[in-house]
C-alpha cells in the first residue's frame, strides 16, 4: 500500500512536531479525528495552529529524519507542512477508492499553502502508482509555488510519471526558468523524445533572439551530440553579436 515505512515516518514527524509546536496544537493534532467528515476542515485549521516558518536550528533536527528518508529535502518543509503531512499519514488507507477520493477532495478545495504541501507530499501517499494523473494535472497549473512543489526536490515525478507527462514537466520547467539542478532524476530519465523537443525549443529561442538555460545540453548532448554542438555554437555567436551591438 505504501512505498515507504509509514510507521517510522509518523513517529519521526510526531517527535519533530512535539518539539516545534505548542502543547495545545500538538495535542489537537494527535486527538482530532481525521475521518472523512473532518479532514477537509482540520487540514485547513492546521494553518491556524502551526508555524508557517521553518523551525529554528533546523539542521540538527533534520539529521535523524533525513537519515531515514533521504529522498526528501526536509530542510525546506515548514512546521505546518510537517503537521499536514502527519494528518495525511493518519488517513484510513485500506479502502483504496475511498482513500483516493478523500485526498482528491483535499486537492479540489485547497488554498495556496494546502495545494503546495499536497503536491510536495505526493511521494508519501498510499497507492503511489495511482497519483500520476494528479501529478500531471498539477504540472498544468500556472501557480509558481505549485510547480515548484512538484518539479523541485520531489522524487515522485521521476519515479512514477509516464514518459509524455515527464517530458511535459521538464519542458515546462525549462520554459518557466526553474533551476534544473533541483529536478530529481533528470539525468536518469533523459530520452530521445525529450531531447528532440528541447532542441526544437532551443531553435525557437534562437529565432526569437533569446538566450537559453545551458542545463538543457546535458539532456541533448548524449543523444544528439552533433545537433547540440551546432546549436551551442549558434547561441555563443548570438551572445557575442549582442555584446558587440551594445
Amino acid at each position: 500500500m505504501f512505498a515507504f515505512n509509514i510507521a517510522l515516518l509518523r513517529t519521526m514527524l510526531s517527535e519533530f512536531l512535539q518539539k516545534n509546536s505548542s502543547a495545545a496544537s500538538f495535542s489537537w493534532l494527535l486527538t482530532e479525528s481525521n475521518g472523512p467528515q473532518h479532514i477537509n476542515r482540520n487540514f485547513s485549521l492546521a494553518g491556524r495552529k502551526f508555524s508557517k516558518l521553518k523551525p529554528d536550528g533546523a539542521p540538527e533536527q533534520f539529521i535523524y529524519i533525513t537519515g531515514n528518508f533521504p529522498q526528501t529535502n526536509w530542510a525546506n518543509w515548514t512546521v505546518l507542512d510537517m503537521a499536514r503531512l502527519y494528518q495525511l499519514l493518519q488517513l484510513e488507507a485500506t479502502g483504496k477508492q475511498a482513500y483516493i477520493r478523500l485526498i482528491e477532495e483535499l486537492f479540489l478545495q485547497a488554498d495556496l499553502g494546502e495545494l503546495t504541501v499536497l503536491y510536495k507530499s505526493l511521494p508519501f501517499f498510499a497507492y503511489p502508482e495511482e497519483w500520476s494523473a494528479r501529478c500531471a494535472e498539477g504540472i498544468r497549473s500556472n501557480i509558481g509555488t505549485v510547480l515548484d512543489a512538484i518539479m523541485q526536490e520531489n522524487n515522485y515525478p521521476s519515479a512514477y510519471l509516464p514518459e509524455a507527462a515527464w517530458n511535459q514537466m521538464v519542458l515546462k520547467a525549462v520554459f518557466t526558468g526553474k533551476n534544473l539542478a533541483l529536478i530529481y532524476g533528470l539525468q536518469k530519465r533523459k530520452n530521445t523524445a525529450l531531447a528532440t523537443s528541447l532542441l526544437d525549443y532551443a531553435e525557437e529561442r534562437l529565432a526569437a533572439g533569446r538566450d537559453i538555460d545551458n542545463g538543457i545540453w546535458e539532456l541533448t548532448a548524449p543523444l544528439f551530440p552533433g545537433e547540440t554542438e551546432i546549436l551551442q555554437s549558434k547561441f555563443l555567436q548570438q551572445t557575442s553579436e549582442y555584446v558587440l551591438r551594445k
Binding site: 508557517k52 516558518l53 509555488t145 523541485q152
Partner: peptide, 27 residues
Amino acid sequence: SGQIDPNDFANGMAINQSEKFENNSIL
C-alpha cells in the same frame, strides 16, 4: 479574524515571501 499580520506587507511582500513560500526563489 486573526488572519492579518501587517508585518506581511508593511515593508513590502518580498521579505515575507522568502519565508512563506520556502524553497521558492523565483517568486
